[in-house]
Design a protein around this nucleic acid. Structure first.
Lengths: 342, 342
DNA sequence: CTGAAAGCGCTTACAG
DNA sequence: CTGAAAGCGCTTACAG
């Protein structure tokens, strides 16, 4: 049946529309029997219930693509989950997310995918940026084509992207440097540093911040030549083992990038000096366990859920041409020790 | 005029209601002139605009009282602001907040206010609890009277309160202990500890956690007898000056409670050994500046905005008899160094 | 406590 | 492109 009317209910209840109306609006002066009959009829006819198709007035749809690293690190996987859950962050728009996973090595794939994002389908893009000139131009082209673009975690500040959603990575590196230096407790020796890629601004900035603090404040700590692990399990594992085996006066290890599982494997498999200080980025389940069992000392992290929601809110705001609430979009640089794990 | 009707608009526009209806629903087949006339009439009569009084269908009202410390510390003041802003955390209920500021010393005032909260007016209460037997009973009485009760920041776990909104303070104390011990860099000496009140579970728990870590892991650090500053500026200042002046081998100061301004004043006014480690709780503007200028070393904090919003969400859930989303209500134990200030 | 009938605001089928 | 009139769903004033 089409949408049932008051008359339908009245007929079914064997009463007048006036009586039904009175029950409906609780105007009083109605016998319990009549009230009951009306309630039954309403229930049977499903009166007043807006049909599913019209229940929610259709919200405008916005489609955002998330270009995320193809690496199977906990951080990348978690970022995917967070991106898929992020549409809940806005309630006035029906946000559709498409995840495109990309090999970040040199940016070629990123450029191809970015250029391939049709403005017929998508309204905005969020991407982990590799800072190479080609990517910068691809971002600028995307913006010129009227796509809204936010960089995520790793920025290209000189591009035309509308917004960067992430932390101050220079400051994050300084935090790592301060913790390393102070935890070292005046011991002298070497610090092994593992970076993911010299082409990712987040890694570069963390490295700079870390170096800054060590050089200015902790001259007792000497940085070994920086090793590039490409955020890959095996490479990181090999680099870590090399640090552990060849350096008798190794005071600490700072890993700037993802791929923590390789580092943790190496730490677990080798007899590691109790005093070795290990500082990593990004909290995942294995990292959490390593903090708890004392294998590592501190973790600097950023909340992927917050990042993804922020990206969605910012893209929506740019698409609608409305203001961003900046206080909401500050991503925190979280420090975790064993005792303040969330 | 009462709510204008289609007919009013038609009359004013000099057209029929049918035409007005067509314009209104963009059914097409209308001259531009007619369209214009209708638009004008609609505008002049303010047709279709729901009058303010009916604009939002009235939401159920819930009234929550926040019993907050009367102390004029930054933390307490911030908590008040956060509580006043917290109703925005729920959108299906019109939450009204009343702030009642209370002298926490011995709980007498807290008990009196708690007993005075009428269930005719209020649906729930959020309170900083002082852990003395009288308060526990007052909470239990409030719960028996069918008020929903959450403890805030400082808990009484053995009371009948429905929920505790705050951090694991034992863990927070352990974090402080770990930072103190590691920052001390194997130096030996004394640690001055300032507590607010031995009757507040949050202070007690932090103290226990801190002692635990120092005793088990840093035997080089000896705790001075704990000083009670009642979270007051002058007392804290005097205690701090006493620490600074009488202890040549003072390695660090840990302040467990509020009233940081007194401590900071003492630190600024005395020539303090560069190496002195100071760890405080709760980030406020003066504390932030002290971190940045190196006067203090680390701050452990909890977000008052999150706490207040959580309290409102939890009280609403209990009043409505619906489930709490626990993931949303975990309050973080935030660690701040100079470089990761938000 | 209830219904028949008039009324109200909006929509629609029809005629021009 | 427009209006007169009928129609629809709901509400209301009145009578019993």
């Amino acid at each position: 049946m089409a949408k049932p009317t008051l008359r339908d209910v009245a007929e079914r209840a064997g009463l007048s529309t006036a009586t039904v109306d009175r029950v409906l609006h609780e105007r009083g002066g109605i016998s319990e029997r009549a009230r009951q009959k009306v309630r039954e009829a309403i229930h049977e006819l499903n009166f007043g219930k807006i049909p599913d198709s019209l229940a929610e007035r259709p919200k405008p749809v916005m489609r955002f693509a998330f270009l995320l690293p193809h690496l199977h690190t906990s951080f990348a996987d978690e970022m995917v989950q967070s991106a898929l859950a992020a549409p809940a962050a806005v309630d006035d728009v029906d946000v559709k997310i498409e995840i495109i996973r990309i090999d970040l090595v040199d940016g070629t794939e990123l450029i191809r995918e970015l250029d391939g994002i049709s403005t017929d389908i998508f309204d905005g893009v969020a991407l982990f940026a590799v800072d190479v000139p080609g990517v910068r131009s691809a971002i600028d082209r995307a913006v010129s084509r009227n796509l809204k673009v936010v960089t995520l975690v790793a920025d290209i500040p000189t591009s035309m992207r509308h917004h960067f959603v992430g932390i101050d990575n220079m400051a994050a590196g300084r935090v790592a440097g301060t913790l390393m230096g102070r935890f070292a407790a005046n011991r002298s020796g070497h610090i092994g540093i593992i970076i993911g890629s010299h082409r990712q601004r987040d890694h570069i900035d963390r490295r700079l911040g870390f170096e800054q603090v060590l050089q200015s404040t902790f001259p007792n700590l000497h940085m070994l030549p920086i090793e590039e692990g490409a955020s890959r399990h095996e490479k990181n594992r090999a680099i870590t083992e090399n640090f552990l085996q060849n350096k008798s006066n190794l005071v600490g290890i700072y890993s700037i990038a993802a791929g923590n599982s390789g580092i943790l494997d190496a730490l677990y498999d080798n007899a590691v000096n109790e005093e070795l200080i290990v500082i990593l980025h990004e909290l995942s389940d294995p990292v959490r366990r390593a903090l708890q069992d004392g294998t590592i000392d501190a973790v600097i992290s950023q909340n992927t859920g917050h990042i993804a929601r922020s990206a969605v809110r910012v893209l929506r705001a740019h698409c609608k041409g409305v203001q961003i609430v900046h206080a909401l979009e500050q991503i925190g640089t979280d420090i975790y020790l064993a005792d303040n794990l969330p």
